[in-house]
Design a protein around this nucleic acid. Sequence first.
RNA 1: GGCCUCAUAGUUCAAGGGAUAGAAUGGGAGUUUCCUAAACUCUAGAUCCAGGUUCGAGUCCUGGUGAGGCCA
Length: 580
Amino acid sequence: VKELYNIEASEKQLIIQKTLPGYEGDFTVVVFPFSKAAKMSPPEIGEELGARLKSTLSEVEDYNVVKGFVNLVLKNEVWLDLLLTHENDPDWGITDKSVAKPVVIEFSSPNTNKPLHLGHIRNNLLGDSVARIKEAAGMPVKKVNLVNDRGIHICKSMLAWKKWGEGETPESSGMKGDHLVGKYYVLFDKHYKQEKDKLAKQGVEADKLDEHSELMQQAREMLRKWEARDPEVMELWNRMNGWVYEGFDKTYERMGISFDKVYHESDTYLIGKELVLSALDKGLLIKKDDGSVWADLSSHNLDEKILLRSDGTSVYMTQDLGTAKLRYEDFDPSQMLYVVGNEQDYHFKVLKIVLKEMGFDWADTIEHLSYGMVELPHGKMKSREGTVVDADDLMDEMYDTARKMTQELGKIENLESEEAHELFQKISLGALKYFILKVDPKKNMLFNPEESINFTGNTGPFIQYTHARIRSLLRKAGGRYAKPEAYDASLMLDAEKDVLKKLAQYPAAIREAAQEGSPAVIANYTFSLVKLYNQFYQDIPVLREENSDIVNFRLALSAFVANVVKSSMQLLGISVPDQM
RNA sequence: GGCCUCAUAGUUCAAGGGAUAGAAUGGGAGUUUCCUAAACUCUAGAUCCAGGUUCGAGUCCUGGUGAGGCCA
């Protein structure tokens, strides 16, 4: 464009896209944006540009112009060359790490008073997958977890266990530790509700119920004792949290999720308090008459935000300030990414501003990867109303479905029971992870427990199945598969070229996914690749073809697809079986 | 009340300001002497409403309507 019209085209003006189906061509240049500056009609520019590209670029076979669109046809050799270069490269599309400073990704961040549910699953899967994707895009990554292990909600389950637990343990009950503790959290709420009903009947006003509730007072008392490091309370706290951690570890392990470092709010809230107090000393914060400490954000068009309550206790923001500082000191990150639900949008906006006001320039590295809620058909999940979808239960159910379906299809009689178990695990987790990750993180998504997650169509198992089928094909090929260097590119069929064109987009898909923080980009890419490959597989014989150069070409193409499917599913934390 | 999101086939999801809005599922009709039918083919079906910006708007702006969220 510059040579022809002397126009410095901005990146935004220079639009090159895939040619639409129904038109001849591989790539299309949109020339409307140059029409004004070149003082020519779009079709005239198109003709000139097409001719110039054809004569100067050896890759361009031909071109045609439709209105303001120049469709470029590339030579088949371009696609064949891609195949020959990368067909057997498991790292195709993966960028070597080039930066020294890590990206720190915080995700999961559970409370230790109840087991993980579907909302946590979305959080965990997103965090884990974004970590994998950023790493594949060349950034070193540290995964961290911040456990919310203190506070009134923890004391509630502790109190309930003390009152009504009769010494029950995970061992004695056979329950997973996190579920056991969750049971007492619910039990507290049940008794608390009963007590409140009773008080209300005695004529206590609605907003005074908390004060008059004996249970709530006892829970508060327990929290005070905890803050004072009362040995008996600390012992119970350590014990019950230990049960929860054991339970969480099992769930994390099953999901294939791990962390480089785990922070505990019980360790960081005091750092936060100190930060707030020293900022108050410097006159950066306001102390009100009742003793509470606030940040005035009116210069940012926001209101005031409380940082310490009048009784000196900390709020969520307080500990997050401390954790951020600690984390910065631990990792010196290029970016601090928080995978947290969009209900916390305001919180993170404020966190960043407050840290900045306190004089920490690294506050600029904070980024909130805000994701949407998982909604049920009747609205949001609420643990108190018993409408949560438990993570362990869900995985169990999916496992059962995977087992039943696989056994019905009867294709794995040759597998040992241990291998079969692993396969069911892979398929069920593949289905669950893909179901969650294929949706744009920013958007709310719906989960209907009545309809179990599908295994056909746009699903994880569909993609896994294609991989298994290719592996089977390659096994059957035995030694016949050699690099198709002798293959005549003019023999290439459209269905084959379509697959190669899609394969060529993989590196770009990784870049975009890393940029957007969106595993959905990878999921959608892989689905469309697999869709195209299945069309090829359905119509075109591989092993039954007679010309051995063509057989080798088709096998190499299939192997290339299998590689990319495996690699891209890896980025979603999904493993692909060789047989299913 | 203030602020922030979101709105696309019956349903669940796609679509960097570009051509004819794609899939899946469900509905209808098909494909197995042949490399795994968890597959493939055909078919009907959608941009909440009203303005505006632009050569061009599902996408940007304004105002409605509806849903969700945040505000010691």
